[in-house]
Design a protein around this nucleic acid. Structure first.
Lengths: 148, 148
DNA sequence: CACCATCGTTGGCAGAACCATCAATCTGAG
DNA sequence: CTCAGATTGATGGTTCTGCCAACGATGGTG
């Protein structure tokens, strides 16, 4: 008799913040799984991506450009350094800072991470056209880079 | 000399899952703040919205239609019952279930919550056209309601 | 010099998502 | 009818994330 319809209340189904959150849960699940298969997580990927694109950086800069709290950057760099993907050294020109440098192994690891992450995106957006993906990126970018 | 550019690495800036997550962080921040001002949180709003739309329901059904784990539904209903927004009673036709019913105070509270949540959406999507909002909802719905 | 900002680091917090388990109860196949 | 399996509410727990407060050390500025 009871057909399990799993119908979502309209109040939630049409609520942008709820939809964004549910989408994020799904998106994070697939990408986290992909990263975990290689023994990494989101923060690690973000750090390595920033280091490869911007070169050696301080932890504070890494945190700012990836929107990760300074205290969480410490833990991420700790793990990456222990895995040999990153090197941490003092900044000779500023005694407060560390200079984080990506290693050759780090670059290689980033390449592998990038591959599985890209595969995760394809799984998430399977059968989406390039135009639809662009539209999604544009809209989300407007939300993320809002200047109140 | 150093202009704080906060530039996001391209690898992240163009990554759907990263963008969705960042958007969710922002969206959750504004809506959580709005709900907290009235002493509630996301789970509470979802429960009340489901109860108003579908009428008295079991906790398992509430969890399914709002994508909240059964164990988390318990805590949410506990809080709502203590606040008098919901009434919990045994299901006479099924000894395993409870029947959760929204009270008059609950309906009133939901209305207030709905108002502040709507205001939060407007803050999040300030200066977005109706068409743009619809597009966003459509795209996100496709991600959320994917059947693998 | 005094003052304030910044940096790395530590420690901690709350919330969310999720999982395993349990006893009680219902359901359906035989 | 009986029994195996599924469902429900509940409890307890884990993990991760996004934060915040504070600290000592350092840098820059007046």
């Amino acid at each position: 008799m009871e057909i399990a319809e799993h119908k979502t209340p309209a109040r939630l189904r049409t609520l942008p913040s709820w939809l964004i959150n549910q989408a994020a849960i799904r998106a994070n699940r697939v990408t986290d799984q992909a990263l975990a298969d290689l023994g990494s997580r989101r923060h690690h990927f973000a750090m390595l991506a920033a280091l490869e694109e911007f070169g050696p950086s301080s932890q504070a800069d890494l945190g700012r450009c990836t929107a990760i709290d300074r205290s969480d950057v410490v833990a991420a760099i700790d793990a990456l350094a222990e895995q040999g993907y990153v090197q941490r050294g003092p900044d000779p020109s500023d005694g407060r800072r560390n200079v984080i440098t990506i290693t050759a192994e780090g670059t290689g690891h980033l390449r592998r991470l990038g591959a599985v992450v890209a595969a995760a995106q394809d799984e998430l957006l399977r059968s989406w056209s390039a135009a639809e993906r662009d539209t999604l990126l544009d809209l989300l970018t407007r939300i993320v880079s809002k200047v109140p």
